[in-house]
Each structure stands twice: as structure tokens, then as C-alpha cells.
């Protein structure tokens, strides 16, 4: 999933200060599942903004909320937001609680309205064992090698993104960059060993074709 975190309230308050009405748009996709910007967080943000604008900005900000199932879905966003936007008064802005894709989906559909990102999009990853701890798992490299690496992505989880690791810095299974974190290549070795596929560990992987990831990336389907 996309891992994100809310921007500080002061930042958001500063961004909304010149508007009369703000529509907070939550997303029940990644953002909601990780309780960063789903329905509940959108409601909580409404209360916070109303209170903070009254106390700090000394004005009555009109705040509405609307949460869509997935903010990266154009059709869903268009149909749920259109009637609400029409009702908004004065200087309007939208505060998106989704990832950068959600923010841009709204912007594309309603180009006349400024959209404020309420979150910082961090990476594609997941929550590991511990609550509130998220790790990056995929860099969307466009040429997935997970089958060869025991389901552990070295492009993302090795600090150097090595295709033929580990490097000489590995220390007792830990990464040279952060001794708290496992060396991805040791994990790969252990996983492949357990699967009886160490031949894949020895396999040489030639350098990547970086043309695949030169942006902006477009996929036109097949």
C-alpha cells in the first residue's frame, strides 16, 4: 500500500487561511486503512480545523467532509465531489487526505479549485509486526525480480539497491547503513536457502536498464 503521514496542523492551517470554505476529502483506500486520512480522520480534521481557525485565525471557516472509497479513482471522485463542490460558498479549497495520486486526481477533475495535500506521501510499503511501523517494500522498478530473490526486494530493501549483494559492509546480518535493520541480501540468502534455491543466489544479475524508470512514466496498456 501507499504509506503516508499527515502534515502538521499548523501547516494545513496556514494553507487554508485565505479561504472561506474547505472541503476535506478523505480516502478509504491506503490512507484510510492505515488510519491516516480515512473517514474518521477526515471528521477529526474537520473538528480541528474549525476549532483552530476560530482560535488562531479568528474566523469562521466553513468545513465539510466527504470520504471516497479510493481517491485515485477518477469516476468515484467525480461523482462524489461534484454536488458538494457546487454547494460550497466563497473562496473554496479542497483538503485531500489521500496520497499524491489522490490529490492530483481531484486537481485533474476540478482544475479551477486549489487542492491542498493534507498528507505527505512516503512510499509503497506495509505495516510490519509492530503497530505504527511501516517499511518500504517496492520502488515500482518496472522489472520485478521477486521470484528470483525469495520474495524480498533488493531494489528497495537493500540500502544500495544492489542486484548482486550483499555488499562488504554487511555485519552479522545487519545493514551497514542502519545496524537496526536486516541486510536485505542476508534475508534473501536465508529465504532462498530454505527454499533450496541457492543457485538463484549465485546467479549474476546484469545491471538494470534504467530507461524503464525514466520519468514521467506512461503505461498505455497492451
Amino acid at each position: 500500500m501507499i504509506v503516508l503521514k499527515q502534515k502538521p496542523l499548523e501547516w494545513i492551517l496556514d494553507a487554508v487561511k485565505n479561504y472561506d470554505s474547505v472541503l476535506i476529502v478523505g480516502c478509504n483506500g491506503c490512507s484510510g486503512i492505515y488510519q491516516v486520512g480515512g473517514e474518521k480522520q477526515a471528521e477529526a480534521m474537520k473538528l480541528l480545523l474549525e476549532m483552530a481557525s476560530e482560535i488562531k485565525l479568528k474566523k469562521n471557516l466553513e468545513v465539510e467532509t466527504c470520504t471516497v472509497l479510493r481517491q485515485c479513482d477518477r469516476d468515484l471522485v467525480a461523482s462524489s465531489l461534484r454536488p458538494l463542490i457546487r454547494r460550497m460558498k466563497g473562496h473554496k479549497a479542497i483538503l485531500s487526505m489521500a496520497c499524491g495520486v489522490g490529490v492530483q486526481t481531484i486537481s485533474e477533475i476540478f482544475p479551477e479549485i486549489p487542492v491542498i495535500p493534507g498528507c505527505d506521501t512516503l512510499f509503497i510499503g506495509m505495516r510490519t509486526k509492530e503497530f505504527g511501523e511501516f517499511y518500504e517494500f517496492c520502488r515500482a522498478c518496472g522489472d520485478c525480480i521477486l521470484f528470483e530473490t525469495g520474495g524480498i526486494c533488493p531494489v528497495t530493501r537493500c540500502a544500495k539497491g544492489l542486484l548482486n549483494g550483499p555488499c562488504g559492509g554487511m555485519r552479522e546480518g545487519k545493514c551497514e547503513v542502519d545496524p537496526e535493520r536486516d541486510c536485505a541480501w542476508v534475508l534473501i540468502y536465508e529465504r532462498l536457502k530454505a527454499q533450496g534455491r541457492l543457485d538463484l543466489f549465485i546467479k549474476f544479475r546484469p545491471p538494470r536498464d534504467h530507461r524503464i524508470t525514466i520519468g514521467p512514466r506512461v503505461w498505455r496498456g497492451e
Binding site: 544500495k160 542486484l163 548482486n164 549483494g165 555488499c167 545491471p207 534504467h210
Partner: peptide, 9 residues
């Protein structure tokens, strides 16, 4: 950091 190649490549 670059690491376009690694020691093997």
C-alpha cells in the same frame, strides 16, 4: 548515492 553498477557488474 549512485550504485548504477555493483561490484559484480
Amino acid at each position: 548515492p549512485v550504485f548504477d553498477l555493483d561490484s559484480a557488474s
